[in-house]
């Protein structure tokens, strides 16, 4: 199962890198979304996907899944959510002010400061 997840995460990273190297700002932001998705899945996979019940003591099982990575992922998700929201609004403002979403045209020049 971990092998399968690793391949999937690798594909996510590959797509993220491809998108982040493109010119359009929105594609870049979609790339960062995929990147954080891959990172979160990696955290989950790296802690092991052994069989066990959900980490709720009321279940009274002998085995539970590791609760730490789930807490880490929850933290990382809200952080990347905050950053992505800020980034999207910034991209919107930049589109209004600079009049382009092409990252190549966002260069400093004498007339464009």
């Amino acid at each position: 199962m971990e092998i399968l997840m690793s391949i999937l995460i690798g594909l996510l990273f590959a797509s993220a890198v491809y998108l982040m190297l493109s010119k359009s700002l929105l594609r870049i932001i979609i790339g960062t979304g995929l990147l954080s998705h891959g990172a979160h899945l990696l955290l989950l996979t790296m802690a092991g996907l052994k069989r066990g019940t959900v980490p709720l003591l009321g279940e009274e099982a002998t085995n539970y899944t590791d609760p730490i990575p789930q807490a880490l992922i929850l933290t990382a998700i809200v952080i990347s959510f905050g950053v992505t929201a800020f980034f999207l609004v910034l991209a919107y403002r930049a589109y209004q002010e600079l009049g382009t979403d092409n990252i190549d045209e966002m260069r400093g020049s004498k007339n464009n400061d």
Binding site: T32, L43, A47, I68, V83
Partner: peptide, 15 residues
Amino acid sequence: VTSSALFVITVGYLY
């Protein structure tokens, strides 16, 4: 954002 994602990944590996 990229380096933060890399930080999470590295912590995952280390864990």
